[in-house]
Simulated scan of single mutants.
Amino acid sequence: MATVSLDNVRKVYPNGHVAVAGASFDIADGDLLVLVGPSGCGKTTLLRMIAGLETVSAGTLRIGGRVVNEVAPKDRDIAMVFQNYALYPHMTVAENLGFGLRLRGMPRAEIARRVDDVARLLELGQQLDARPAALSGGQRQRVALGRAMVRQPAVFLLDEPLSNLDARLRLSMRVEIARLHRRFGTTTVYVTHDQIEAMTLGQRIVVFDRGAIQQIDTPMKLYERPANLFVAGFLGSPAMNLLRGILHAGDGLALATAGGTVRLGTSPQVDALADWHEREVILGLRPEDLRPLAADDPSAALEARLEVLEPVGNEVFLNLRHGDSALVARTPPGVACVPGEMVRLGTAVQRLHFFDPRDGTRIG
């Protein structure tokens, strides 16, 4: 196991495209860190630089305290799991698992021991003599993971390893990866564009957009206190509701939007907006922090028209329209609302988020 440290690591291609604008963070020994962001944001490029598959244009990259900018991939003591499995179709599962160890000249008895141990852990013992074509997608992914695990590397690198699986398999493999990490404690860097994977797997998350780090923190701190509009909108399903308007301080603070007035009440977040009175701000509301109220409830913060009601079993999504803005409220089953009617909504005042519309940064 080892630490991984990046100090202003950049990747600039010959055509001038900046894939990674300057990444600086540390991964502690045994941590599982997730790089998350939309397609093309630079997260896989950064992972490939850690692996040695992409050159570092500038900055310093260390693994286990050793500068590895010019070190070949085979000498970095890392193992990488790719998105497309990359299994050898003419080899059995056992041969695929042990191939890397054979290349390194490891004794046959030690290879067999490691392969058997990993196969037992990943429940592949009955498939050791099968070839990849005879395996399911989940079994192939487990073979790809096992091939990295038998190496017993200092660092695991996983590049969107679950993206080719169906929803049910992704869920089970997420649990499997988390369980294996807890058992082995190997330093792990995991790349994904799926914010649910990021939130459920990562001990810390690095949020990327257009080659730049937007925020680094634990999953819940990112969710509860996003640093900017990108993080606020990217993490969370459904995404955070955003309303743009002018702050007015009259009979209590309120936000004048194109769809009407949003009463903000009193909270530390609202009290911190004194310098923003009569200025434009963006209000953020998580779907679970919007709740429908009775038609005569005076505590309502805003009104919106219900367009679509989506029951999904243990909860219901209310898709609403407030002026030109679409809103989503997450509620328990049994809500008495009918599409087309106006719904009065209350908010969790202490959980409001405010952003500067000029640069998207968090206010307060």
Rank of each mutant, 00 (worst) to 15 (best):
V68D: 13
A258K: 15
R225T: 14
Q215N: 12
P333E: 08
L302G: 08
L171F: 11
V36N: 15
L201V: 13
M220C: 08
G284P: 05
A212W: 13
E95Q: 12
L87C: 09
I363F: 05
R321A: 10
S267E: 03
I282K: 06
N84T: 10
P132K: 06
N314G: 10
G252Y: 12
L158S: 06
G100K: 10
A19D: 03
R263W: 08
P153N: 00
T188N: 03
D194E: 12
G16L: 13
R120F: 00
P298M: 03
D271P: 04
L264I: 06
N69G: 07
A295W: 04
I282D: 08
D117M: 04
A109C: 06
N241W: 05
V115Y: 06
L35D: 02
L124G: 10
A109G: 11
A154Y: 02
D209H: 15
G252P: 00
G40I: 00
A167L: 11
L101I: 00
V155M: 04
E224P: 06
R182L: 04
D7Y: 07
V189N: 07
A58W: 01
D159N: 12
P287F: 05
Q152L: 05
R330P: 02
L169S: 06
R174K: 06
V343S: 08
D129I: 00
E54S: 13
K11R: 15
D166A: 08
D296W: 00
T44I: 02
H248A: 15
R104L: 07
G202L: 09
R66K: 12
A130K: 15
R142I: 00
H17A: 11
I196M: 12
Q269P: 08
L135Y: 12
V115L: 06
V206I: 14
A239P: 14
A112N: 04
E224L: 07
N15Q: 09
M91A: 08
M149W: 09
D7S: 13
A326W: 11
D324C: 02
V12P: 01
L165G: 07
G211W: 14
A198D: 13
D26H: 13
L255M: 13
A336H: 04
F82T: 03
R351Y: 00
